[in-house]
Write a protein that binds this DNA or RNA. Structure first.
Length: 220
DNA sequence: ACCCAGGGTCATA
DNA sequence: TATGACCATGGG
């Protein structure tokens, strides 16, 4: 089969099934989670979210009124906690000042993306996470897993710019938030199970989990 | 005892 | 433009 983003999406979906992302109860929790997950394993970020929820802080007003010092204590398990506490604070204050979900949801995707990127601590990947999973915009999230998998699969070189790779994928799949969001989720699921961080499977210490990975790459 | 994770910012050259 | 340091917990 010809190597296309569509074909890869189909194979990942067949191999792993729907991922039901983003694992959050509502849009606000998703956005906070997007900051907490940065460069962090999900179980650690999940603990931090649980702590915030148990403290009743998973809503704009309570979170905005929480002292930075208390926030750092609650999200410690997520790692990089002092940095992330400041980022969450910056985000929440921005979010409230911009009218929260209703007003922000009325913005066209490019404007909303620029607005998100203006927040200290929100870069391209986090912005696109929020766009696709919280605002249902047809946007693909580029991450390290995607770069490695696409390179392995012959769909990219691996050193493309963020916006380049993003445009390539978005041009190769339907402009549908559900599809593009599912694609990113499947790529992460695949990446977690297989060959990181090596570009090839040969020296992977997780080989025993790589059955699906080998099946995928064998056809590349 | 290492390695790295569902990144981003800042300081250098 | 392009690297490198830094943040920092928890699991493999």
């Amino acid at each position: 089969m010809k190597a296309t983003y569509r074909a890869l999406f189909r194979q990942l979906l067949d191999a792993y099934g729907p991922q039901h992302w983003w694992p959050a109860d509502d849009a606000f929790e998703m956005m906070i989670g997007a900051i907490l997950i940065q460069h962090t394993a999900w179980p650690n970020a999940s603990r931090a979210i649980d702590n915030l929820r148990d403290a009743g802080l998973l809503a704009p007003e309570p979170l905005a009124g929480t002292k930075l010092e208390r926030l750092t204590g609650l999200i410690r398990a997520a790692g990089v906690y002092r940095v992330k506490a400041r980022r969450i604070h910056a985000f929440v204050h921005w979010y409230r000042s911009r009218g929260e979900y209703p007003a922000l949801g009325a913005l066209p995707t490019p404007k909303l993306r620029r607005a998100l990127l203006s927040v200290h601590g929100i870069g391209p990947e986090t912005a696109d996470d929020i766009l696709v999973y919280a605002f249902n915009r047809p946007v693909f999230v580029v991450d390290a897993y995607a770069r490695r998998l696409f390179a392995r699969y012959g769909l990219a070189r691996g050193d493309e710019r963020y916006h380049q790779l993003k445009a390539m994928v978005e041009a190769g799949l339907p402009g549908d938030a559900a599809i593009l969001g599912e694609f990113h989720a499947l790529i992460v699921e695949h990446g977690k199970r297989s060959c990181r961080p090596k570009p090839l499977c040969e020296s992977c210490h997780l080989r025993k989990h790589c059955a699906s990975a080998r099946q995928l790459t064998a056809e590349a």
